[in-house]
Design a protein around this nucleic acid. Structure first.
Length: 302
DNA sequence: TTCCAGGGGTAGA
DNA sequence: TCTACCCATGGA
């Protein structure tokens, strides 16, 4: 990377099959700041603010060979990194790329469906997510009642307005922490970030996390049932059924469908000759896929 | 001006 | 838990 000296490089072993590029780019999140896809290098790049307050640039590329599936991670920083910082970076990369998710059952199901199998067999399915749940909740709220280009704009302005700059290339910024959003005002979210009516939701969420009233990260606990998670997510103002189901997917639980206008129109075209389907009818179609419903839908559309 | 886009909150049954 | 109804914002 030309931006600065490499402070660290390491490789991560991945359980195959794993199609790094498709996995990263299959989800729209790759278009949302601070993530970006570097076409020339086939790399995922992202500025990240660490718990220490240091802001680094992380770049991940595939380092797979015919023998094994590996990922190469480069970190650029304004100085050397501590072991604690390196551990945090590895943990975040693993979470973001879902390197520890076991999709073998999903592949097993797909292998019985010819069309689906052709699509996923190279190792798709590990859809991109954010290192911290706060960021994913904010981004999900930014997808509601709007079109995608506006979502991209909202997230971009949020990062530019409130995120910490990467010291070696200050135009690149990290996603703001809850404390940074809470330290701003709702008016900034409304007028500069232009989140509209979502401003109050995002501000309130950030404040409750910053004040220690709410602990979003605790929802990453794999012992929680999907039902418990959904209840927890829906207790956030601004998060309804669609958003909670989207967030369940981001947490690695695929048993709920996030029924939005996109899914409604797809199901109407694919299964009902263009006639609108009720939510009950949509659920009935995917019911047979059990805990893999969302992913099956995802790759049926893909 | 009207309509719509990857909905949400709330009251009331 | 479900439905009806109102509310939200910016762009085409």
């Amino acid at each position: 990377m030309a931006i600065g000296p490499n402070a660290a490089s390491f490789e991560l072993q991945v359980r195959g099959p794993y199609d790094f590029e498709r996995s990263v780019r299959d989800h729209g999140w790759i278009a949302l700041s601070p993530c970006r896809w570097l076409k020339e290098q086939s790399a995922l790049q992202r500025v990240e603010r660490l718990d220490s307050g240091r802001v680094v640039l992380i770049q991940a590329t595939s380092a797979s060979s015919s023998e094994d599936v590996r990922l190469s991670v480069d970190v650029v920083a304004d100085g050397s990194l501590t072991d604690i910082e390196l551990t945090e970076i590895e943990r975040k990369v693993r979470w973001m790329l879902r390197l520890d998710e076991d999709l073998s059952e999903f592949y097993q199901l797909c292998s019985g469906e010819d069309g689906l199998w052709q699509r996923v067999k190279t190792g798709r399915g590990r859809l991109l997510r954010s290192p911290e749940l706060f960021e994913d909740v904010v981004k999900t709220i930014a997808t509601t009642n709007t079109i995608w280009s506006q979502t991209v704009g909202m997230v971009d302005r949020l990062v530019k307005t409130l995120g910490d700059p990467f010291p070696l290339a200050p135009t690149l910024r990290a996603f703001p922490t809850p404390a940074q959003v809470a330290a701003a005002t709702e008016q900034v979210l409304r007028e500069q970030v232009r989140l509209g009516y979502r401003s109050a939701y995002v501000f309130e969420l950030a404040r409750s996390i910053a004040e220690g009233v709410r602990n979003l990260e605790s929802l990453k606990d794999s012992r929680l049932t999907a039902k418990e998670l959904k209840r927890g997510l829906k207790s956030i103002k601004g998060v309804g059924d669609y958003s909670a189901s989207t967030l369940l997917m981001l947490l690695g639980r695929y048993e709920e469908l996030a029924i939005d206008s996109e899914m409604r129109s797809f199901v109407a075209r694919r299964y009902f000759e263009g006639r609108p389907a009720t939510d009950t009818q949509i659920r009935a179609i995917y019911d047979r896929w059990g805990k893999w419903k969302y992913l099956m839908y995802w790759f049926e559309v893909a």
